[in-house]
Design a binder for these strands. Structure first.
Length: 269
DNA sequence: TCGATCCTGTAG
DNA sequence: CTACAGGATCGA
């Protein structure tokens, strides 16, 4: 269930726990997560390498290994990546696990198995990530940048926000929340939104993501996996039929691109 | 650019 | 049983 904030929280935790650790052995449990790469090849490539850095690009976790190789992990819908004290502690639904030299384990748990894990050299990674859009929490993500991205786009703004080739990291929840706060109708073509309202939207995107990063950090701030922190309270997401927190009107759910969109038809126009 | 598809679990 | 789930990719 990870969008940018959850992925960022995972990265933060891995940075603390994994930097300097050496991988004794890697095990890919689900064949399909490595895509076109061979499972055995991936296991071989990571063996004996140490973790030097952990970073994030969009929803991708990048684990930089010694020898200039990078392991890329995408959590998909249900993935989680975390360190356990003993690599022999292995839950069901593991897509992959890694035995660390100090006996700990790095686990890639993923019930639905829609996540991905592959290993690249610097150039291969660059190719893999080309096409990813702007980082919404970077300095380059200005109102001007957003309006350039949105210019002439006929796509509904909600789908536009979720399109990773334009903006990298927003998903179904935070796209809906940002649009609610900016009072923009999710069905509106992205290119038809005024410069001023796009500026406002940029602000709500950043605010929603920053807030969610903090919240997600709390959710991950205990051993094992992720727990939803108590203060995770979306305004509209998942609240079909409930009163809008701003105007009291009924929150609606519609389908866009095969996903649910929640919004307040009275506030968002 | 839309719809089907990859998977598994859970709620109704 | 069906519908749906915080994702991404592929083909028509």
């Amino acid at each position: 269930m990870p969008e940018l904030p959850e992925v960022e929280a995972v990265c933060g935790k891995l940075r603390k726990e994994l930097i300097g650790a050496q991988i004794r052995a890697g095990h890919i449990a689900r064949r399909r997560i490595t895509g076109s790469q061979d499972r055995g090849e991936v296991e071989k490539m990571v063996r004996g390498r140490s973790v030097e850095r952990v970073s994030r690009r969009g929803k991708n976790i990048l684990i930089e290994l010694s020898g200039a190789l990078i392991m890329r992990v995408h959590l998909g819908m249900t993935g989680n990546l975390y360190v356990v004290p003993d690599h022999r502690l292995r839950p069901a639904a593991l897509s992959a696990w890694f035995e660390l030299a100090d006996g700990r384990g790095l686990l890639f748990e993923d019930t639905r198995g829609l996540g991905a894990l592959d290993v690249h050299d610097t150039d291969g990674l660059r190719k893999k990530l080309t096409g990813l859009g702007a980082e919404p929490l970077s300095r380059e993500f200005t109102g001007e940048a957003l309006s350039v991205l949105a210019a002439k786009v006929r796509q509904p703004v909600k789908l536009f926000l979720m399109d990773q080739r334009r903006i990298a990291g927003l998903g179904n929840i935070y796209a809906a929340e940002a649009l609610f706060l900016a009072r923009i109708d999710p069905r509106k073509p992205a290119g038809s939104i005024s410069r001023a309202r796009l500026e406002a939207l940029r602000g709500t995107i950043v605010a929603v993501l920053r807030e969610a990063v903090q919240s997600a950090r709390r959710g991950y701030s205990r051993p094992g996996g992720y727990r939803e922190p108590e203060n995770f309270a979306p305004n509209v997401y998942g609240r079909e039929g409930e009163p809008c927190p701003a105007c009291g009107g009924k929150i609606r759910r519609i389908a866009q691109g095969g996903r649910s969109t929640y919004f307040c038809p009275r506030c968002q126009r």
